[in-house]
């Protein structure tokens, strides 16, 4: 989890079932990114785990971090990417569906905090590398098979 100001950009590479959540303030040109691995902190079996990896606690922690940088939470907007299903199995094992569950949990957490999702590139079965530029609020997404796009 990290926060940057323009002209710096922020990126995370090799996202599979994880979801990259970018929260940004267009006017202040400041953005934060959290890399969500698991949908809900209640899945944590011990209490000392890194909060950033869960959708609910990770997004909350990122909002706090942006507030500490002087951002007004009501100005925040979100762009999200990731949540792929890298392997296709005919099993009902929850681990295999973790991508879609992460996306859903991220959306619920953003809704709870009243943060609108401006753009998303989620699901599918490709890994993604994402980079956000706070200068123009564009999220660049690179995949192996489908090339590069900006959302």
């Amino acid at each position: 989890m990290d926060v940057v100001k323009s002209p710096d950009t922020i990126r995370t590479s090799g996202l599979g079932s994880c979801v990259g959540v970018v929260l940004y303030d267009e006017t202040k040109k400041i953005a934060g990114l959290v890399h969500v691995m698991l949908p809900d902190s209640s899945l944590g079996k011990t209490s000392t785990l890194n909060v950033a990896k869960f959708a609910d606690t990770g997004i909350e922690a990122l909002i706090d971090k942006l507030k500490a940088e002087g951002v007004q939470p009501f100005r925040l907007k979100a762009k999200i990417a990731g949540g792929a299903q890298m392997f296709k199995f005919t099993t009902d094992n929850d681990t295999m569906r973790i991508g879609p569950r992460n996306v859903e949990a991220v959306k619920n957490a953003l809704k709870k905090h009243g943060i609108p999702i401006v753009a998303e590139n989620t699901g599918g079965n490709s890994g993604r590398t994402i980079e956000f530029n706070p200068e123009n609020s564009l999220l660049n997404i690179r995949t192996v098979n489908q090339g590069v796009c900006d959302i």
Partner: peptide, 25 residues
């Protein structure tokens, strides 16, 4: 039964970290 993917290493390996991440960092 094994699954096959041709993709970024990080995207592939992270599926193996899901179970573990519920207990440890």
């Amino acid at each position: 039964v094994p699954g096959l993917a041709v993709d970024m290493f990080g995207a592939i390996i992270s599926i193996g970290l899901i179970e573990i991440s519920q207990i440890s960092d």
